[in-house]
Lab assay of single mutants.
Amino acid sequence: MDVFMKGLSKAKEGVVAAAEKTKQGVAEAAGKTKEGVLYVGSKTKEGVVHGVATVAEKTKEQVTNVGGAVVTGVTAVAQKTVEGAGSIAAATGFVKKDQLGKNEEGAPQEGILEDMPVDPDNEAYEMPSEEGYQDYEPEA
């Protein structure tokens, strides 16, 4: 019985440690998101679009440190934060509304985080759909 109880105690310690790591990862992701939003706020009209992409990228980098179902929630929060940063930029006159959601080359930025393969159960990952990809044929 002692062996059984000791095993359960060790398992509990492992769960607590994993929860603490997840909590730490979420806190880091939130900190990076805040950094990115402050970065966007300090940019001029020309830099705002690039700044919004930076927020998304920093958040995406930190999301990889967070495991399990938390990833889905962090990704949703990050996307809403990026959308909010863009709205703030438009409201303050840093950028025109028609410039939001495009990178410096004018290509749409939507789907940055949505296409990231995420499995809350950590069982399997699927690649994003290939609808947006084109076949590449090298020139002879």
Rank of each mutant, 00 (worst) to 15 (best):
V48N: 01
E139W: 10
L8N: 00
N122M: 05
G47K: 09
K32Y: 15
M5I: 00
G86H: 13
D98S: 08
G31I: 09
D98F: 05
K60C: 10
E13Q: 10
T59K: 02
M127E: 12
V48E: 01
Q99D: 05
M116Y: 15
Q24W: 11
V3W: 02
G51T: 13
G31W: 12
G7K: 02
A27T: 09
D135M: 14
Y125P: 12
F4W: 08
T92P: 03
E104L: 07
A78I: 14
Q24C: 12
E126K: 08
G41K: 08
G14P: 01
G25S: 12
T64M: 12
V15P: 00
E105I: 09
E123M: 08
D115F: 06
E126D: 10
E126R: 01
K34I: 06
V52N: 01
H50P: 03
V49H: 00
V74C: 07
H50E: 06
G84E: 09
P117G: 06
D119E: 12
K34E: 06
E139M: 10
T54R: 12
D98P: 12
L38M: 09
K10Q: 05
G25W: 02
A85C: 05
K96G: 03
Q99C: 13
K32R: 08
G106N: 14
E137L: 07
G47E: 02
G93T: 02
E110A: 06
A90D: 03
P108G: 13
V37M: 10
A69H: 12
V3N: 07
T64G: 06
D121T: 06
G31L: 13
V118S: 05
T59C: 14
G36W: 14
M5W: 02
V118T: 07
L100C: 06
G106P: 10
A30G: 02
D135G: 04
G51D: 02
A53L: 06
G47V: 03
Q24A: 02
P138V: 11
F94Y: 11
T92K: 08
G73S: 05
E83G: 09
D115N: 08
A19E: 00
D2L: 07
A27F: 11
E83W: 03
T54V: 09
E123D: 02
N103M: 11
G36P: 03
D119K: 12
L113V: 04
V16Q: 11
A78P: 01
E13V: 05
K32E: 00
Q109G: 03
G41D: 00
Q109A: 11
T72L: 13
G31M: 00
V70E: 05
A89D: 04
K10D: 04
N65G: 09
K97Q: 03
K97P: 09
A56F: 15
P108T: 09
A11G: 03
K102M: 12
E130V: 02
E20K: 06
E13M: 00
G51N: 12
G73K: 11
V74E: 02
P138Q: 12
P128N: 10
N65D: 03
Q134S: 08
K34Q: 02
T92L: 10
S129W: 12
E104R: 09
V70W: 04
E35V: 05
V66M: 14
K96R: 15
E110P: 03
V48Y: 03
E35W: 08
S42H: 00
K10L: 03
V49D: 02
A56N: 06
K102R: 02
E137C: 10
K10W: 05
K45R: 09
K10F: 00
N103G: 09
G51C: 14
G73H: 08
M1L: 03
A91S: 05
G106I: 05
E110Q: 06
Y133P: 14
E20G: 04
D98K: 10
E57V: 13
T22S: 10
A89G: 07
K43F: 01
M116E: 10
K32D: 01
L8H: 00
P117D: 07
T75N: 09
Y125C: 14
D115V: 09
P128D: 04
T81I: 08
P128Y: 11
K97T: 07
K96N: 11
K34S: 00
E46C: 09
A56S: 05
V74A: 12
V37L: 12
L113D: 10
E130G: 05
V48F: 07
A56E: 01
G51I: 13
A19G: 15
E110C: 08
D2W: 02
S9W: 15
E57T: 08
V63A: 13
V70F: 04
A76G: 07
M127Q: 05
F4P: 00
V71T: 00
K34V: 14
Q24H: 08
E46P: 03
V82G: 10
